[in-house]
Amino acid sequence: MSTRASDRLDTSRQPGIDRISTLLQHRYGTQHDLSEPLPVTTAIETLLAHRSVRFYLPQSVPATAVELAISAAQSAPTSSNLQAWSVLAVEAKDRKARINAVAGNQKQIDQAPLLLVWLADLSRLRGISNAQGSPGEGLDYLESFLLGVIDAALAAQNAVTAFESLGLGTCYIGALRNNPEAIAKELALPKEVFPVFGLTVGYPDPGIKTDVKPRLPRSTVFHREQYVANSDNEDFSGYNQILRAFQKIQLLPAIDWTEQMSRRIGTKEALKNRDLISSAVKFLGFQIK
């Protein structure tokens, strides 16, 4: 085994099937064994143990942790090495409060010592194009905007894993898209920069226990060779029961997942102004042909 491989695999333990089985049971709310045992890796453990953290200690995030997380973010794949994303750190309480007003005054934004705003950023590429005397026509199409959003998401998820491996907690904040124009103004974003989502970061409050939220069965989302379409009458009763058990443990309102999702997508009002994103994107300078 190479040195690099030995760094990744914990060979001092048994194959680790018990630990992985426990993590999988938490993730799915039921037994989910692997087809064969594998060595435990800290990366897999960190990913399977992910949970959103909404209660934080009043303790700042070390600068080194932020630096490592951003480097991890920059290690994510990026289409054609365009690196069409940026990230902006917000720590000032007054600015966080104004951003939080857009996001619906969420407790995690108020408590977290650090808010990272992840950006689809075509402005840097536009500047390069102008400097090179190029028309930059490729930036005017939906593909480029979509590319920037994907790049930002990939980068952010790498950062989340890095933060969690260092003992920090995070929570994505999609509600920044309730009013992208207001966020752009607050952060002095140039044209062709779009706030995709926020990310709160901080040390979890140990007095508030947050369990891993169960997901749909693996077989529901995993297809082989071709997509197998499910009927409108697909039975989600088992998952509804699992999620209700989680809600009871977390002292959350009891509601079936299917009902909750139906409400979330039922009307444009349920989108909380995000039905206006297409006009916001154009207002912020994107062409979107």
Rank of each mutant, 00 (worst) to 15 (best):
Thr170Gln: 05
Ala159Thr: 03
Gly104Trp: 07
Ala97Asn: 05
Ile150Tyr: 13
Leu122Asp: 14
Leu142His: 01
Ile99Trp: 03
Val90Thr: 01
Leu88Ser: 07
Leu154Val: 01
Asp151Tyr: 07
Ile128Lys: 06
Asn130Asp: 14
Val102Glu: 13
Val149Phe: 02
Leu88Trp: 14
Gly136Val: 04
Leu168Arg: 12
Asp140His: 00
Val160Ser: 04
Ala131Arg: 07
Gly133Leu: 11
Glu164Trp: 05
Gly167Trp: 11
Val117Gln: 10
Asp110His: 10
Ala89Ile: 13
Ala89Gln: 15
Ala92Trp: 08
Leu146Pro: 00
Leu122Cys: 05
Gly148Tyr: 13
Gly133Val: 05
Ala155Tyr: 05
Ile150His: 15
Pro135Arg: 00
Gln157Cys: 05
Ile109Asn: 04
Ala156Ile: 05
Leu88Ile: 14
Lys107Ala: 15
Glu137Thr: 04
Gln108Phe: 02
Ala156Arg: 13
Ile109Glu: 11
Gln132Lys: 15
Ala103Ser: 15
Leu119Lys: 07
Gly167Pro: 02
Asp94Ser: 05
Arg124Met: 12
Ala152Leu: 11
Asn100Ala: 13
Leu122Phe: 00
Asp121Ala: 08
Ile128Val: 08
Leu147Pro: 00
Arg124Glu: 14
Glu143Trp: 02
Ala97Cys: 12
Trp118Asn: 09
Asn105Val: 04
Gln132Gly: 08
Ile109Thr: 03
Ser129Arg: 01
Ile109His: 07
Gly138Phe: 08
Asp140Glu: 06
Asp94Met: 09
Leu154His: 10
Val87His: 03
Asp151Ile: 04
Ser86Leu: 03
Ile128Asn: 09
Gly104Ala: 08
Tyr141Asp: 11
Ser144Arg: 04
Ser86Gln: 12
Ala152Arg: 15
Glu91Lys: 02
Leu122Glu: 07
Ala159Asp: 10
Ala131Pro: 00
Val87Trp: 10
Gly104Lys: 06
Gly138Met: 10
Ala155Arg: 03
Ala92Ser: 11
Val117Phe: 08
Glu137Ile: 02
Glu137Leu: 07
Tyr141Ile: 06
Ala112Met: 13
Ala159Pro: 03
Thr170Cys: 14
Glu164Asp: 08
Ala120Pro: 01
Ala112Pro: 09
Gly148Val: 04
Asp151Gly: 04
Gly169Thr: 04
Ala97Ser: 08
Leu119Tyr: 07
Leu115Gly: 03
Ala101Trp: 00
Asp140Phe: 00
Leu168Gly: 11
Gly138His: 11
Lys93Cys: 11
Ser134Ala: 02
Ala112Thr: 13
Asp121Pro: 05
Trp85Phe: 13
Val87Met: 14
Lys93Gly: 07
Leu115Asn: 05
Leu119Ala: 05
Gly167Lys: 10
Ala152Tyr: 14
Asp121Thr: 04
Gly148Ala: 12
Asp110Trp: 10
Ser86Thr: 02
Phe163Asn: 09
Ala162Arg: 03
Leu168Ala: 06
Glu137Gly: 03
Ala120Met: 10
Gly167Ala: 09
Ile150Leu: 10
Ala131Tyr: 05
Ala101Ser: 13
